[in-house]
């Protein structure tokens, strides 16, 4: 393992910010794994830490294939993490909206540019990412469909789901999108949490990366292959919104299978404790995402359900 400082920015009164990379193996730049880009991505950082710990052992055992190298960057935003702020401490900009960056530009453009210059020529890029809505996910691989994406490669993570979606205007400045523009096959891996730790799903994230490294011949490490992933389109998931604002009381968990018509949450009147709305599952599905904020706003997305049970729905419809 080689620990190197990939980028450094001097501060006025705080310690300099260092972006540290851990390199395993020597040779072709095979895969780069990036953890937190935002200050609240504790789970993403933690997952990278576990991955570093595991890769050290794998390297020591001589299981990294010759001519392959792996880079792990646990965080590119320690300045925000250390003060518990999601975005950049001074101007509140998002480093993950600054790629490919610009060396002569503004602060976060420089950080993005300085880091990207070091990682834009890897064959594969993996980012432990977080969603703009706060909540818990089933572990999955998320990919923006561009010319350079491959579902077959995404299946090598062995996660239960692959979510594909088309890039939107604001995606064009993310790390994932720019990796793809530069010819890197890029994937975002989501585990359960962001600001809170969930060790089990962090380990699922680590195994998913190891599976990918094994399936692509970067490490010589045989392991359980995981799932034969289901590919789902982000637009085809059921977004379940609350019709009314109030206190959110979930009645199911991420990963649960729910039936059509099942009450999966209640919205409670904050003053009088009565139920303002019962939220029912519109279809059979698995709870793929669940909001984790207690106060919810009108039309807020509470759940995303996968469309796994189309066959049941079709059967029921044909009976009617």
């Amino acid at each position: 393992m080689k620990k190197t400082i990939l980028y450094e920015m001097k501060n006025l009164y705080r310690d300099d910010m260092r972006v540290t990379g851990y390199q395993f193996g020597e040779g072709e730049k095979s895969v780069c794994v990036v953890g937190s880009t935002r200050g609240n991505e504790i789970q993403q950082l933690f997952t990278c830490g576990l991955l570093v710990k595991t890769l050290k052992k794998i390297e020591k055992a001589g299981l990294i294939n010759d001519g392959k190298s792996i880079m792990v960057i646990p965080s590119i935003n320690t300045s925000s993490m250390n003060i518990e702020k999601r975005f950049w401490p001074t101007d509140n900009t998002d480093i993950n909206r600054m790629f490919p960056g610009y060396a002569l530009g503004e602060t976060t453009q420089r950080i993005a540019g300085g880091v990207f210059e070091k990682i834009n020529d890897y064959k594969y890029g993996i980012q432990f990412a977080s969603f703009f809505m706060s909540g818990r996910f089933l572990p999955h691989v998320r990919m923006m469909m561009t010319e350079n994406t491959s579902i077959e490669d995404a299946k090598k993570f062995g996660l239960q789901y692959i979510v594909k979606r088309n890039p939107r205007p604001f995606d064009t400045t993310t790390l994932n999108y720019n990796w793809q523009v530069w010819g890197t096959k890029a994937f975002s891996v989501y585990t359960h949490e962001t600001a809170n730790l969930d060790e089990n799903s962090a380990m699922i994230g680590v195994y998913a990366v190891l599976n990918f490294l094994s399936q692509t011949g970067i490490i010589n490490y045989s392991m359980h292959r995981g799932y034969n992933s289901s590919v789902i389109n982000a637009d085809e998931m059921y977004d379940i919104q609350t019709p009314i604002a109030g206190i959110f009381q979930p009645l199911c968990e991420v990963g649960d299978s729910v039936s059509k018509g099942q009450v999966i949450s209640k919205i409670i009147d904050p003053y009088e404790g009565k139920t303002l709305a019962e939220i029912k599952a519109p279809e059979y599905g698995n709870v793929f995402f669940m909001n984790n904020k207690q106060l919810v706003y009108t039309n807020q997305i509470l759940f995303k359900l996968t469309d796994d049970y189309t066959i049941i729905r079709k059967a029921e419809n044909s009976e009617q």
Partner: peptide
């Protein structure tokens, strides 16, 4: 007044 490196 306070600038980071890169501040406009």
């Amino acid at each position: 007044p306070i600038c980071d490196e890169g501040s406009l």
